[in-house]
């Protein structure tokens, strides 16, 4: 039904000639296709068959692909943020607040954001290029004519995998960041690991943890969805594959920042009324 609807929308746009201008028409057509792509995801995700093996493979793929990068960047973010924040707190004699400050920064913003940016580059471009290459070499059509639903097998599994794996990676990234911060604090102020973590989490509320998970899930979904959409609609051979990979990264990062703004505004509304 969605395939037919998409076909009808494209035909209608094509048959009417130029409605506004060619670029605006293309943009509107892309928006309607993207919307139908998301609707189709929700429709296909909750109907049988479920490709659990492929989902598990994709989760491992997403997790393992980014693990080393996440570890290094998470650690560096923790160390650098601690190092940069210390002088300001030293002026007020408040270095004991350093663990809480770093933890607030990581849980409220840096953990999910850094993970999303790394994964957009590493995983998003990979998915965009892989599906794009499958599209231009007719491998997706080959699946379709073999009575296999390529959307369900390729798109649903990948979007679900990023939606599941990226929150896990964000938690991991946050702990690695905090550990980096601890090492820095331990070196300068000789704090123990337990007292550092007790101190760090003392200002973290349920709302912070909820926002952390909401952001991570949203970013994971966005990375999977945008990358799959770009790859799935790649055209014009190898050039199209490159463009799909590139647009997957650029658009994902752009959307992640917009989502960050919307979620933070929404959460602050609940926090401060």
């Amino acid at each position: 039904m969605i395939h037919n609807l998409k076909h009808r929308i494209n035909v209608r746009f094509a048959s009417k000639g130029v409605l506004f201008s060619k670029k605006i028409d293309e943009f509107l057509c892309d928006c309607s296709n993207a919307f139908l792509f998301v609707v189709r995801f929700f429709k296909e995700a909750f109907t049988k068959p479920f490709h659990l093996n492929e989902l598990i493979n994709q989760c491992f793929d997403v997790g393992l692909k980014s693990l080393l990068l996440i570890s290094i960047t998470g650690f560096i973010v923790g160390v650098v943020f601690t190092e940069q924040s210390r002088p300001g707190l030293v002026d007020f004699g408040a270095t004991s607040w350093l663990p809480s400050l770093v933890c607030l920064a990581i849980v409220r913003a840096l953990g999910p954001l850094v993970t999303a940016l790394i994964c957009a580059g590493k995983v998003g471009s990979g998915i965009g290029a892989e599906l794009g290459s499958m599209q231009v070499t007719e491998q997706i059509d080959a699946m379709e004519v073999s009575a296999i639903n390529p959307f369900k097998y390729l798109v649903v599994t990948r979007v679900m995998a990023t939606t599941i794996a990226i929150p896990v990676l964000a938690i991991y990234c946050s702990f690695i960041g905090l550990y980096g911060s601890y090492l820095n604090v331990h070196e300068q102020e000789s704090s123990s690991l337990i007292s550092f973590y007790q101190n760090a989490f003392s200002y973290i509320s349920f709302l912070d943890l909820f926002a952390f998970m909401l952001k991570s899930v949203t970013y994971g979904f966005t990375i999977g969805m945008v990358s799959c959409y770009m790859g799935y609609h790649a055209t014009q051979g190898t050039r199209g594959v490159g463009r799909a990979a590139n647009q997957a990264v650029v658009l994902t990062i752009f959307l992640v920042f917009i989502e960050e703004f919307i979620i933070v505004t929404g959460i602050n509304f609940f926090r401060y009324g």
Partner: peptide, 26 residues
């Protein structure tokens, strides 16, 4: 049965997996 111009073999799978895939899925 649809035989594609450029064969459209799944390049992440070997020959056995390429053939077994439509069978096991259907």
């Amino acid at each position: 049965g649809f035989s594609f111009q450029n064969s459209a073999l799944y390049d992440s799978m070997n020959v056995f997996q390429n053939l077994a895939f439509p069978l096991t899925m259907n």
